[in-house]
Design a protein around this nucleic acid. Sequence first.
DNA 1: TGCTTTAACGTAACCGCTTACATTTTTGAC
DNA 2: GTCAAAAATGTAAGCGGTTACGTTAAAGCA
Lengths: 338, 338
Amino acid sequence: MPDSSTAPTIDDVAREARVSTATVSRVINDPDMVSAKTRERVQAVIEALGYTPNFAARFMAAKRTFTIGAIIPTMENAIFARGLQAFQEALHERGYTLLVSSSAYKAKVEEEQIRNLVARGADGLLLIGHDRDPAIYDYLDRQRVPVLVAWSYDETARAPCIGFDNRAAMRALTESVVDMGHRRLAMISGVSEQNDRARLRIAGVRDAMIAHGLDPASLDLIEVPYSIADGQAAFAQVMNRDTKPSIVLCGNDVLAAGAISGAEQLGLKVPDDVSVTGFDDIELAHVVRPPLTTMHVPHRAMGQMAAEELVGMIEEKRKGVSQNLKTSIVQRASVRAV
Amino acid sequence: MPDSSTAPTIDDVAREARVSTATVSRVINDPDMVSAKTRERVQAVIEALGYTPNFAARFMAAKRTFTIGAIIPTMENAIFARGLQAFQEALHERGYTLLVSSSAYKAKVEEEQIRNLVARGADGLLLIGHDRDPAIYDYLDRQRVPVLVAWSYDETARAPCIGFDNRAAMRALTESVVDMGHRRLAMISGVSEQNDRARLRIAGVRDAMIAHGLDPASLDLIEVPYSIADGQAAFAQVMNRDTKPSIVLCGNDVLAAGAISGAEQLGLKVPDDVSVTGFDDIELAHVVRPPLTTMHVPHRAMGQMAAEELVGMIEEKRKGVSQNLKTSIVQRASVRAV
DNA sequence: TGCTTTAACGTAACCGCTTACATTTTTGAC
DNA sequence: GTCAAAAATGTAAGCGGTTACGTTAAAGCA
């Protein structure tokens, strides 16, 4: 009789079922390698004892965990939620479990989490964006843990990625508003240090300005953390300049929602007094009033493709192939021509 | 020379530093048990080799992982985000790592995730709400994994919890609107099956109705998944009845945001034509127009206290003590007296 | 100096599983 | 019924750490 006060091990099952531990292991991992009769007997014992194989032991012996780790900058807002959900679902279909950590946009924390996940035996890692210490990639190479980067496409980057061209997207959005007559541009961006998405979006705005004969130095740029309250505060700041912008381009929808709030607080009407744009097209974008003109990102497709690709890299032991997904401008009511 | 093509193990470090593996282990786990001289030498080798102890091996030998698992119903909306973030931060301060999974509001999936996290050696678990198969608690007991439930307070429940009284809170909110003259109530709730929060909030509404002489059966109740789109659709549905409600009470802010959108689509003004309330007081609540009257939940405090308590349970091997946190009504513009 | 304590370090068993290899049993052809 | 091949099962060696216990070196004291 196994000690009922502690978790049953494979030995308990083996003893109870009168087989060797190898056989128990086989009915779990390779069922049709064992005869139907013993298989059923063993399964019954497993059931009766409520046995769950110990992951650590399993990992040590087999070097596989069927676990994927993902480290996202934040769970506080919904930016990554949808894509991650799709990622998780696609992973689940393929028999993998997703473990998520958040780094609070801190490089040091991210590094810690990466080591943590790897030490825990993650078979692969999903990371957001390319900006990080190259030493991390060396470490990952050494540990033979495949990595895939999402939310950012850069064919020159060291890691394969499934993402979109942040710079080109933001340039396109900016050009569209410049075409509508906007000349005095302000931008509320997320903190760009260690964040290529933010950095490239800023660059995209400048690209558009240059292309249209505007002085990129005239861009009134403020960097703040990604939160509604920060967007609100930053908006007040840009509207307090001597030459007020006719449009405020925001690094993402959360910031843009904050900007719209900020406008209301100042008694300004969007888009009559000032236009606002977002980026990402999360649900928030069509809940705020006015609804946000923003850049639509194929979150779910990105998550799904990332799952597919990462699993492929793991199972076929091959390099990942990058993909540049298309984004598209969604015109809503927060921008008007001037 | 250790094989540079593979991750260094404790043996590599020991060999290089000319000590035994026991000593290496000690400099990592109990540094002042070894002399300064050897300690420094070993540390240098660890540094040079980029050695990270293997978690699985460590767990097998020591039975501790300093990892806490949390399973939340969803990452798609921000309901749990803030509390979880606080939970994670508090955990981090105490030297623990948080691993998060989401169950998509599915009991089966949650069970799977629980087993997964336990098999992975989570030292403790944070679960949301009390509704689940009691067998799960048996399993957790047997595995000696402490569990703490959050987002719901119930002193009669099997697991200790840090939460709030969903029923009383919703009753209070309902009473406040009834006091303002509302008599025809509708409610858009999340799916209440396997979800005590949703169930208790519905019960709270009925409590209030009974207390004020209204027929609880007259409540027009619709249950939908928690999403803005669902809230929107449900709103159209309740407004399509013969006797339209004067107020629509929503199970949470996400649904309420959807309801407000829905109202706008139907050309209805909130709160002039119909009032709307939410629950949770997430950022979304003050971004929508009109801002939501809702029930404020102390998310961050809840997360922090949960971390503290769970770590206490683990380290002092004691039972958890439950706490009933206070919520409070936040009056904004989405409700008006009739 | 010699002997006892204490500090520092080493030895090796063990944690719970997988899997290569060895052994036994079953199957099927003659 | 034999015997070879195939199927089923068992044996035992790791995987990479931790730690109880034993051994050696240093320290303290008469």
